[in-house]
Amino acid sequence: MGVFDCLCRPGGLCGKRKHLIFHPKNAKQGEIVNEKQKYEKIILRISLYAGMAFVVVELLMSLWSNSQAILMDAVFDAAELIVIGLSLFLTPLFYQPVSEKKPYGYSQFESVFIIVKGFMLISVTLGLITSNIQILLQGGRHVDHGQISAFEFVLAFLSLLVLLLMRHFHKKTASPTVEAEIYGWKVDFLCSIGIALAFFAQIFLADTPAKKIAPYFDQIVAIVIALFMLPQPVKMIADAFRSIFLFAPKEGVIQKVKEISHGILEDFQYTGTFYDVVITGRRMWISIYFKPKSDVISMTLLREMYDEMDTALGQEFDDYALELVPELEKENNQKETF
């Protein structure tokens, strides 16, 4: 603990006043970071190698079957591969410790990276929608519905295996990049199931009046899948912008922090006055401003309170930094932090 120019929130609530911040170092923090980085790389490699195999198989099948639905899936997966490759290269940066020159480390850079990924996926999706609309206007194409249905059922099964494997390692680490990859595989699984069922159902419509839509069915399915995928990158971009502009997280997150810390503060005869919570990339920064009920602050009790609060928050959140900031009052009742 010490008095220093505030590095916790540049340009934030504290401005350039000085703080008395209690933020003890954890001796095991380096080991935990290394373990998280290790498992994050494992998850990204699984996603990369599985994605490469899927893209090759889907491209070959799209050429063989002349299916736009399968081609759309292949192009979308190929765009994802570029991002995964960059993620593997940049992952060590995201685990670099904070410093005076980089108060947030490289957390903000991760948010920028996710925004770039989101806009790239949106561009690919809109391009595929436009291409399929053009084919529809040209009279559509005939494809083997049974063949495509069987192929997509196999892809769905393989996607589920990859997803389960990634979720197994995800229990030992958490980051926006990993969560985006897992969400992407969920979408792939659901899309493959949807395509398989749609083409399977079309087989039974061959001898009905609905057979007239057969030449257009492949493009219709491709457009529906693209529209289904579109909200994914839009949500990623929105969350990343919240991080870049240091907006507070969702109300539920702040309320949870208050619920956990309020009781502990009361137990140690302190009153919480302000909760400064922001999320940058994968890390959440929690600064709890409190006021003592007496004129004396015991460093021993403050350490006990910090440890108890840190343990309680750790059961709810994964990657965060906790700071306790005493708030004092001047004689003229103007509040000031040291």
Results as ranks from 00 to 15, higher is better:
Met52Lys: 09
Gln68Val: 02
Ser67Arg: 08
Ser67Glu: 11
Val56Phe: 13
Met52Gln: 05
Trp64Glu: 08
Met61Cys: 09
Ser47Glu: 04
Ala53Trp: 07
Leu44Ser: 01
Met72Cys: 12
Leu48Ala: 00
Val56Asn: 03
Val55Gly: 12
Gln68Glu: 11
Glu40Ser: 07
Val55Ala: 11
Ile43Asp: 01
Val56Met: 13
Val33Cys: 03
Gly51Arg: 04
Glu58Gly: 04
Glu40Tyr: 01
Leu71Arg: 14
Ser62Asn: 11
Ala50His: 00
Glu35Tyr: 07
Ser67Ile: 14
Val55Ser: 10
Val55Met: 08
Ser62Leu: 09
Ala50Thr: 06
Leu48Met: 04
Leu71Trp: 15
Leu48Ser: 00
Glu40Ile: 02
Leu71Phe: 15
Lys38Ser: 13
Met72His: 05
Lys36Leu: 03
Lys36Asn: 09
Met61Ile: 09
Leu63Lys: 07
Met72Ser: 14
Met72Trp: 09
Glu40Phe: 01
Ser65Gln: 12
Leu44His: 03
Ala69Phe: 10
Val57Thr: 15
Ile32His: 06
Asn66Leu: 10
Leu63Arg: 10
Glu40Thr: 02
Asn66Lys: 14
Ala50Asn: 02
Gln37Pro: 00
Asn66Trp: 11
Asp73His: 05
Leu63Thr: 13
Met52Asp: 04
Ser65Glu: 14
Leu48Lys: 02
Ile70Lys: 04
Leu48Tyr: 10
Leu63Glu: 12
Asn34Cys: 12
Trp64Tyr: 13
Val56Trp: 10
Leu63Pro: 02
Arg45Ser: 01
Asn34Pro: 00
Arg45Asp: 01
Asn66Val: 11
Met61Trp: 06
Leu60Ala: 15
Ile32Met: 06
Ser47Met: 06
Glu40Gln: 08
Glu35Lys: 15
Gln68Arg: 12
Asn34Trp: 02
Leu60Ile: 15
Gly51Pro: 02
Phe54Thr: 04
Ala50Ile: 01
Leu63Tyr: 11
Val56Asp: 02
Lys36Tyr: 07
Ser47Val: 13
Ser47Phe: 03
Ser62Ile: 12
Val57Ile: 14
Val33Ile: 15
